[in-house]
């Protein structure tokens, strides 16, 4: 079957989709967006978390056919998504300086192949800065989930962070640096507003 939907703001069409395929499979294997990770395929790890019409969901549990006509944001689109949100916030007068300007993490000339200096969302930058990335397999899902939480709850308590991220397993870090990263992103966000 054919599925048409929007990914990271761009219309996409996937052809010859087997009816049992998940959104995750279509993103990874048909649309060249392997950022969302497949770690359990049973909704237990959160590595495949994407936003479907704004809601964080496990893309492994969404049948490809169910996304017809809907909007998906993946980790690949997270920086843009956050940027647009920040700009929209400014447009409405909610924040004085854009997050990017305030944090000083905007592109300063990309450093060769590492992507150093690439424009990142605050949560992405905070994950790097706080040492929240080790093997990185859980990272995309955590970023999508954490970014959405900070959107809803800009000043989360530790318990709030833990609850919001309780659907995302990490096997490397023991979560401490992930907590640090989310606190850092929240703090920077707070300074920026």
């Amino acid at each position: 079957m054919r599925v048409n939907f929007t990914v990271n703001g761009r219309p996409q069409e996937a052809d010859d989709v087997w009816e049992g395929e998940s959104l995750l499979y279509v993103l990874r294997e048909r649309l060249g967006l392997p950022g969302s990770k497949n770690a359990c395929e049973q909704g237990e790890c959160g590595s495949c978390t994407v936003r479907l019409d704004g809601e964080p969901v496990c893309s492994c549990l969404v049948a490809a056919g169910q996304v017809e006509g809907r909007e998906v944001v993946t980790v690949e689109g997270l920086a843009d998504y956050a940027k647009q949100r920040a700009e929209a916030g400014c447009a409405t007068g909610a924040c004085g300086t854009s997050l990017q300007n305030a944090q000083g993490w905007q592109a300063k000339g990309t450093d060769s192949h590492t992507g150093e200096g690439a424009e990142l969302s605050p949560i992405q930058q905070a994950f790097i800065d706080a040492g929240a990335v080790q093997c990185g397999f859980c990272t995309p899902g955590l970023l999508v989930a954490a970014d959405e939480m900070l959107e809803r709850n800009p000043n989360p308590s530790d318990a709030d962070i833990r609850e919001a991220l309780s659907g995302n397993l990490c096997r490397c870090t023991g979560y401490e640096k992930i907590m640090d990263a989310v606190r850092l992103a929240a703090a920077r966000q707070g300074e920026a507003v």
């Binding site: 967006l33 392997p34 950022g35 969302s36 993946t74 980790v75 690949e76 997270l78 920086a79 590492t114 992507g115 150093e116 690439a118 990142l120 992405q124 930058q125 994950f127 790097i128 800065d129 040492g131 990335v133 990185g136 990272t139 995309p140 970023l143």
Partner: peptide, 13 residues
């Protein structure tokens, strides 16, 4: 910081 950090947070790694 990790040299592969940016790649890992953008989904490009």
């Amino acid at each position: 910081l990790r040299p592969d950090g940016t790649l890992k947070v953008t989904g490009e790694f």
